[in-house]
Nucleic acid binder design. Sequence first.
DNA 1: ATCTGTGTTGAC
DNA 2: TCAACACAGATG
Length: 357
Amino acid sequence: MDGSCIDESSTTDSISPTSVSAFPPPTASKSPESPLCRVGSGTSVILDSESGVEAESRKLPSSKYKGVVPQPNGRWGAQIYEKHQRVWLGTFNEEDEAAKAYDIAAQRFRGRDAITNFKPTAAETEEDEIETAFLNSHSKAEIVDMLRKHTYNDELDQSKRNYRIDGQGKQNRNPGGNNVGLSASDRILKAREQLFEKSVTPSDVGKLNRLVIPKQHAEKHFPLQSGSTSTKGILLNFEDITGKVWRFRYSYWNSSQSYVLTKGWSRFVKEKNLKAGDIVSFQRSTGADKQLYIDWKARTGSNNNNPVVCSVQPVNMVRLFGVNIFEIPTTNGNKRTREMEMFSLECIKKQRVFGAL
DNA sequence: ATCTGTGTTGAC
DNA sequence: TCAACACAGATG
């Protein structure tokens, strides 16, 4: 999925030192005999080597914009870094075009809070909201591709048109059901952003009947009004992958200075058979509804003790909106426990969702 | 012949 | 992470 947009040619992990040094580096095709030499194809800077006064460099002009680099021909390149690797976003005639391309990539790669060249800090218009949804409904590779081909704005506009024609006011049908055949606007409306994940502790799945929400995430994503609401708490609705809605009481416990999900949580633990070390993840729709979602997955890595997962056949996992989704091979004629049955159903539903996107 | 964007490095 | 720089390869 992603990754096709990163520098492919750098995947040669073992560079042969011999072949590298085999290339004669100094081309030196310029005209060194002249006191005045024009260098490069783009920035024509006169170099007076005699006086040394002008001593102007042949250096390309650096950009005032983040993620923008000069090209020898006077054009501008845009790039962003991810995972120690440069992702090239294309070349542009105007410096600010390149800067805008960087901004778009930054929003897609780093989220709402990304540092950008132009995007304002606050004042989120509905247009921005649609654009965010558009961004999140496409993979990073797709967005990069649009930027490199200079088709991003066209695609966004097209998407907006679809959204207005058949997206507005449409009720979401069969929640959690088969999503095959979603229109572009539906995909946007259903796009969701990952908020955070937590590996549940023994006490989160124990007798305390509560889940501690790490403070940083709680305050960022589930802000409570100060005063009465924080102690009394509020009710939050989360939809799971099957479309079932879970309602939890969410409040702040002064005694432990913790944000917690209380009433309703133990039922979730029981139904999903959550074990310590399993991961619960929270998402939120990027559409106007701002619907919250909850998902879970078995403990990552290591030998897990979950017999359900262990007994299931090879499981493929795919990443959807930052959520790990399991996919089960359909060929399975064996008897299964009730628990397995339920788990498989769960997976099949997830598989459908995945197939739809 | 021209231009893109990769290889590479060093500063932050 | 980031941009500066050089230039190998891609492109037309």
